[in-house]
């Protein structure tokens, strides 16, 4: 009988350990990024690093300012949100409230498919369709630009926005809508003036999730944005925080390499901030 108890305790211990692995991973990632990211920031100086406007890591007299990357990531994400959120949101309202069951299922499948397509495939199609297209339409020397990246990102965040918004809209109690309809509001008015406000924290969560996706995407963006460390402009070739890390990692060394880790640290801090916001919206919903 003692054995049995010891056995159960051992099993309990094993499961506890497995449960703690996730926590360990988060700690590992945080610790590694901080340890690897701090030295370069110290050497370059925090202000010069974050707000320096030029990144010339390979020149004889290198300068490591990542403001272009930070701004590109912010502009790129903002652009993706501006295009992607309205489309995703309106699609979600249609799917949740108007679409017949069959259409809802079919479009839902299409959206899951969109979510499942690897980011390099987006990058590839973007490279061969968007980039030349932008070059032709706007008469540019090179179509690989912030605009191309924004469009690719907007498409890539669509599935998250649609799915999370649909879930939030589906959860709105039917009584609210019935009450509005009974007061003489038409269905469409009811959806936008009653259902949407009722689901607003879920929809906000969808937007924040989209921001997280967009700011963290690397490969697709790398393939369409031209990857030059310019200050961002819509038709400029630009480099994001993510692509800054990816593009130089394979051949970097010394301070340059350390600076790349620092960029990753900055990106990580952005993501943690976004996660905290996301949690705020999701917890707020539970509290209601």
């Amino acid at each position: 009988m003692k054995n049995k108890k010891a056995f159960e305790n051992m099993i309990h211990g094993i499961f506890l350990m497995l449960g703690l692995i996730a926590v360990g991973c988060v700690l590992l990632i945080t610790v590694y990024l901080v340890i690897a990211g701090i030295p370069a920031i110290r050497e370059i100086g925090l202000f010069k690093f974050l707000f320096g406007k030029t990144w010339e890591s390979t020149s004889a007299n290198p300068s490591y300012g990542i403001l272009p990357f930070i701004l590109t990531s912010i502009y790129g994400t903002a652009g993706a949100i501006i295009i992607g959120v309205p489309i995703g949101f309106l699609t979600a309202v249609y799917l949740s409230k108007i679409a017949p069951q069959k259409i809802k299922a079919a479009v839902g499948t299409a959206v899951s498919l969109l979510a499942g397509i690897p980011s390099v495939v987006y990058g590839l199609v973007g490279m061969l369709v968007l980039v030349p297209g932008i070059r032709e339409i706007f008469h540019l020397a090179d179509g690989a630009s912030l605009l191309a990246a924004i469009i690719v990102l907007a498409i890539m965040i669509l599935p998250s926005i649609i799915k999370v918004s649909v879930t939030a809209l589906d959860a709105v109690p039917k009584e609210y809508e019935d009450a509005s309809l009974a007061l003489g509001a038409t269905p469409v008015e009811t959806y936008f003036k009653v259902s949407v406000p009722a689901a607003k924290s879920g929809i906000a969560a969808a937007v924040v999730l989209g921001i997280g996706r967009a700011i963290g995407e690397a490969m697709a963006v790398m393939m369409v944005s031209g990857n030059v460390a310019n200050m961002p402009g819509l038709f400029q070739s630009v480099r994001f925080l993510t692509t800054a890390v990816a593009s130089e990692m394979s051949y970097s060394s010394g301070l340059q390499r350390q600076a790349l880790f620092s960029i990753a640290l900055v990106l990580f801090l952005f993501i943690m901030l976004i996660n905290a916001t996301l949690n705020f919206f999701l917890k707020g919903k539970k509290g209601d």
Binding site: C25, I29, L33, E217, A246, A264, F268, I271
Partner: peptide, 13 residues
């Protein structure tokens, strides 16, 4: 938190 971290950071760590 893990599900929100971008893959490039996973690659780096």
């Amino acid at each position: 938190t893990l599900s929100g971290i971008p893959s490039i950071i996973y690659g780096l760590v």
